[in-house]
Design a protein around this nucleic acid. Structure first.
Lengths: 211, 211
DNA sequence: GAAATAATGTCAAATGTTTTACATTCTGAC
DNA sequence: GTCAGAATGTAAAACATTTGACATTATTTC
């Protein structure tokens, strides 16, 4: 994430001047098309980033959590925002103004280099994702997604997410997502619960993703 | 593109120290996994960027032409390259060393800001593409791709590309690509030729892409 | 604890995509 | 001009995904 790549002194400076904002479940934080006046740092809770489609469907791009930042891109590019962001459950964010950010950044040349590195890294990841999109079967792509969501946890991670949300992240329907999960469960890699997926064997799940 | 966002004086400086290299049709310019020692600027010809899959298939991400640069990401992120690059027909590139680039960049703070902007813009575009990937039917996605390839041309653009390559850019098979093109032709938006697509009506094609 | 709401599990029909296969057309080389 | 190679056009079968529908189970609300 970009904010965490900044110099700690700069991070502190930005936080001092930031405003805390709370959002309720499903509340819209930013909308596509708006011009950026700053970016957000997630203090607590989770945020879904993606695009609302015409019919009201949502195509998720990422699920962000505590310590993650987002919205910096539109600040740097001076272009309208290209994704919608929605609070998932209650969340607390800090809003850091573009003006203050860009001004302060001039005094931290090392942080600019760090930003270039972090941005490049992220673009590499995204391109890799784009190239790999269609690769592999749905169960394999689902396995990869679950490994990411489960995080670093060694064994028995509990991921609190609905099958609807998983489907939106993969760009498939809930029926197909459920079928993929059933296959992973039959292989004893996960277990399906109400609003949760339990990752039983992260290592073998990761192996499965590479097929 | 990133190179073109740099200060003209910096561009000139980098070009002076660059080495010219020629590549033949289908020759591999860079491979996934290599560490970066620089980036390329395309002087003439075209370069396909994407990933070779295990079975030898190729999943294209972009088709670059004269004036475009690529390979900067791995330089900034200090990570291995994540895409393969292949010459499409003969091409002439200039290789700019990472060392020289990063050294010179320190003297051009405004260019660093410009790079942040250009990188952010590109990441925004890529995220948008990622979110839109599965959206729309194949004919609609094909229409969008052709509009991009046709460039700024007002009417009657001639795009020299095979259906196989179009399929690789969309991540579908040639059969499906052909079917999509047939539909666009039936709507009198394009015409299919041997190794070429003629865009008859760019405006309506763009309209079609939004369905 | 009953009712309302949210989420999961599953099915069948319709649709879309890939695979496989082969004929045809175009282009460049000789 | 003929031939070989490259690219296109198309069809049928196999496979995968979506759509729409409904039953079931879990959770929350009152």
């Amino acid at each position: 994430m970009l904010f965490s790549s900044l110099d700690p002194a700069l991070q502190a400076h930005l936080l001092r001047g930031s405003a805390e904002r709370r959002y309720e479940d499903d509340q819209i934080i930013q909308q596509r098309g708006e011009m950026a006046d700053g970016f957000w740092l997630i203090e607590a809770g989770e945020v879904m980033v993606g695009q609302f489609l015409r019919e009201g469907d949502f195509r998720a791009v990422a699920l962000l959590g505590k310590g993650d930042s987002y919205g910096e891109l539109a600040v740097f590019s001076h272009r309208p925002r290209i994704v919608d962001a929605v609070s998932r459950g209650q969340s607390t964010l800090r809003h850091i103004s573009a003006h203050r950010f860009l001004d302060a950044l001039g005094n931290y040349p090392a942080s600019m280099r760090a930003l270039l590195g972090a941005l490049s890294h992220q673009l590499q990841d995204t391109l890799s994702l784009l190239a790999g999109m269609r690769r592999g079967t749905n169960p394999a792509r689902m396995a990869e997604l679950l490994v990411n969501l489960a995080g670093e946890v060694r064994r028995e991670a509990r991921v609190e997410i609905t099958q609807q949300e998983l489907a939106e992240l993969l760009g498939i329907t809930r029926v197909t997502a459920n079928a993929a999960l059933r296959i992973l469960q039959q292989a004893k890699l996960i277990e399906r619960g109400y609003g949760t997926i339990i990752v039983r064997d992260r290592d073998r799940l990761m192996q499965f993703a590479l097929d």
